[in-house]
Amino acid sequence: MIKLKFILNGKEVIVETEPSIRLLDLLRDRFSLTGTKEGCGVGECGACTVLMNGKAVNSCLIFAAQVEGNEIVTIEGIANGNELHPIQKNFLKYGAVQCGFCSPAMVLSAFALLEENPNPTEEEIKDAIAGNLCRCTGYKQIIEAIAESAKEVTSH
C-alpha cells in the first residue's frame, strides 16, 4: 500500500492504495467517479479517457503510483454544478449522444483539444477523437458539436 497525493477535479486528495491498481479502478472504486468507463482495458476504445495534466490519457493504462503529484480531471470535473460546459451543451444540442457510454470520454477529448487548439480544423477534431470509439453515432454529430463549441470559445 502507498499513500498517494494528487489533484482530482481541482481538489487535492490523499488516498491509500495498492500502487499497481489502474487509475481507472482508483477513480471508479475509491472515488465513485463512475463517469469514467471501461470498454476494452487495452487502450483501444478510449472510454476511460481522463485528463492528466491537461492531456487526454487512457486511465486503464496508468498505474495509481504514476499519478502521484499529477492533476487529474474526470467528466465529473467538467460541468460547474448543474451548469454544463459549452462542449456538453453542444453535444446535447447536436444530438451527439446516443447510448452515452463513450460520451464522457469524448467530451474530455474535445475539452483537451479546445484548451490547446481553440480553432481546430475538422481533421484536427477527428485526430483528437480517433482514439474514442463510438458505435452509435458515426461521429458526425460529435464532430459538429465540437466544431460549434470551438466557434463559441473563440468568439468569447
Binding site: L33, T34, I75, A79, L84, Q88, L92, V97, G100, P104
Partner: peptide, 16 residues
C-alpha cells in the same frame, strides 16, 4: 435527449 444531461455529465448509471 431526455437522458442527455445525465449521460453527458457522467451521472448516468450503467450496470457496472
Amino acid at each position: 435527449r431526455e437522458d442527455g444531461f445525465d449521460k453527458i455529465t457522467g451521472r448516468a448509471k450503467f450496470a457496472d
